[in-house]
Amino acid sequence: MNDDLATRLREQGLRLTPQRQLILRAVVELRHATPDEVLAHVRSQVSSVNASTVYRTLEVLEELGLVRHTHLSDRAPTYHSALEHEHVHVVCRRCQKVRSYDPAVVQPVVDALAADGFVVDVGHLAIFGECADCGSAGT
């Protein structure tokens, strides 16, 4: 992870800083996290990191192709590692639990849209509904 980060940063004329390493590690460890959640995680290790550093670094990491974001709520974007396999996000509207599914689950939709000339960014896709646990709780 750090070698990939260092290489990509160097290619852009940027330095590998401890803050960038901590922020990327936080995204990987948290799996799906808002910038505020990343900040809290990083501050549990280094209290001097500020919010603007986290936001700027997440932008840089996304430009480098190391993290991706999606919108899993009406709040801030949620970041996850781009080093993981591509996946579709499924979000329960009741408990907010996020699950990841293989893109094959939505392949018929992707194929239908591709036939019409539209290319789907599956990693950015989020499907909202109600999980089995919450669905059975309401009956």
Rank of each mutant, 00 (worst) to 15 (best):
M1G: 10
D3G: 09
D3S: 12
D3E: 13
D3Y: 04
L5A: 03
L5P: 02
A6S: 13
A6N: 12
L9M: 07
R10Q: 15
R10N: 14
R10L: 14
R10W: 12
E11N: 12
Q12S: 14
G13F: 08
G13M: 07
G13E: 10
L16W: 01
P18N: 14
Q19R: 14
Q19K: 10
R20H: 05
R20S: 07
Q21R: 15
L22S: 09
L24Y: 01
R25K: 13
E29L: 08
E29G: 04
R31Y: 02
H32S: 11
H32T: 10
A33F: 02
A33I: 00
T34L: 01
P35C: 03
V38A: 00
L39F: 04
L39D: 07
V42C: 03
R43K: 14
S47Y: 09
S48I: 12
S48T: 15
V49L: 06
A51T: 04
S52M: 13
S52F: 08
Y55M: 07
Y55P: 03
R56I: 02
T57K: 03
T57F: 06
E59H: 13
E59Y: 09
V60M: 11
V60Y: 00
L61V: 05
L61K: 04
L61T: 04
L61D: 00
E62I: 04
L64G: 06
L64E: 06
L66M: 04
H69C: 10
H69R: 15
T70P: 00
L72H: 06
S73F: 00
R75S: 15
R75K: 15
P77C: 08
P77L: 06
T78P: 02
T78S: 14
H80E: 10
S81F: 02
S81V: 05
A82H: 02
E84W: 14
H85I: 09
E86T: 12
H89D: 07
R93F: 02
R93V: 09
R93M: 10
R94C: 07
C95A: 06
C95H: 00
Q96K: 14
Q96M: 09
K97D: 00
K97F: 01
K97W: 03
V98H: 09
R99S: 12
P103E: 00
A104N: 11
A104L: 13
V109K: 01
V110E: 09
D111R: 08
D111S: 12
L113Q: 10
L113D: 04
A114Q: 11
A114C: 01
A115F: 01
D116V: 08
G117C: 05
G117W: 06
V119S: 11
G123D: 15
G123F: 02
A126W: 05
A126G: 10
I127P: 01
F128T: 11
G129N: 05
A132S: 14
D133G: 00
D133K: 07
D133S: 11
C134Q: 01
C134D: 02
G135T: 08
G135D: 09
G138W: 00
